[in-house]
């Protein structure tokens, strides 16, 4: 089985280690990873700020790069959600394009979803160095991808009693892309509430499947001087467990 990795611009800039971990997880599971080097950003910023022209251009670029892929796996939920749930509707006037986008959308997955739904991974081995960890189930993972409880199950298998569920885990962390800078006071309140719930778990690691949320949470934690907490992609823990 082959997957084409959709790196996402967030990982390109901020999360190379998470991306490397995804590659290692796939290789440990016997999946061949392809990295189409001409890929860029999925266009979500344009989609969410009322600039469909820009979003369309990047959607078309995505199509050019990924249309022939056996499977596309994005390492961040919101990008997978963009490809899967929003590209086709950007082209209301072209049945042909919509069909092509729907077709590739059917082969596009979020990382953890791919493990669960396509590879059928039932068990993760124990992690050799477990630390107290909680999980931020991002909005797009829950409601864009429709993945509930899967990451938590893997975390439980890897970490045992060191995995602590997060209270109010279906509530937004307040990022919302442009929302974070358009309404920073509200965004900051939601962020603070989320960090409070995180602190209450006593965890020193926070895992997630959405890199935007991780960025929001880690930069907020740094501002609040919560220096003992690290934020990382679930794949990094899996890579440790599968190594």
């Amino acid at each position: 089985m082959k997957i084409s990795l959709l790196l996402t611009c967030t990982a390109d800039v901020l999360y190379p280690a998470s991306a490397r971990a995804c590659v290692r997880v796939f290789e440990a599971l016997g999946v061949e990873v392809i990295f189409p080097r001409l890929q860029t950003c999925c266009g979500q910023p344009w989609l969410n700020t009322g600039r469909p022209d820009g979003a369309r251009r990047l959607a078309l670029h995505f199509l050019e790069v990924f249309e022939d892929a056996e499977n596309v796996v994005a390492i961040s939920s919101s990008c997978a959600d963009t490809v899967r749930n929003h590209y086709a509707e950007l082209f209301p006037d072209s049945v042909l394009l919509r069909e092509r986008f729907q077709e590739v959308a059917g082969r596009t997955y979020e990382f953890c979803e791919f493990l669960h739904r396509v590879l059928g991974v039932k068990n993760m081995p124990s992690h050799p160095h477990p630390v107290r960890t909680t999980y931020h189930s991002s909005c797009r993972t829950l409601r864009g991808i429709g993945l509930r409880g899967v990451a938590e199950e893997y975390l439980g298998q890897m970490l045992g009693a060191d995995f602590v569920p997060l209270a109010e885990n279906e509530t937004c962390c307040g990022f919302g892309g442009s929302f974070s800078v358009k309404l920073p006071e509200v965004s900051g309140r939601l962020l603070e509430d989320k960090l409070q719930n995180i602190t209450a778990t006593g965890a020193s690691l926070v895992a997630s499947l959405d890199l935007s949320c991780l960025t929001h949470l880690s930069t907020g934690a740094e501002r609040l001087k919560l220096n003992g907490i690290r934020f990382l992609h679930l794949a990094e823990l899996m890579a440790g467990a599968l190594a």
Partner: peptide, 18 residues
């Protein structure tokens, strides 16, 4: 607006993915 309640993000350590 970003730094009202957050620091600027820092890239993870190590080389860039590409």
């Amino acid at each position: 607006a970003w730094t009202l309640c957050r620091e600027l993000p820092h890239p993870q350590e190590g080389p860039d993915f590409r």
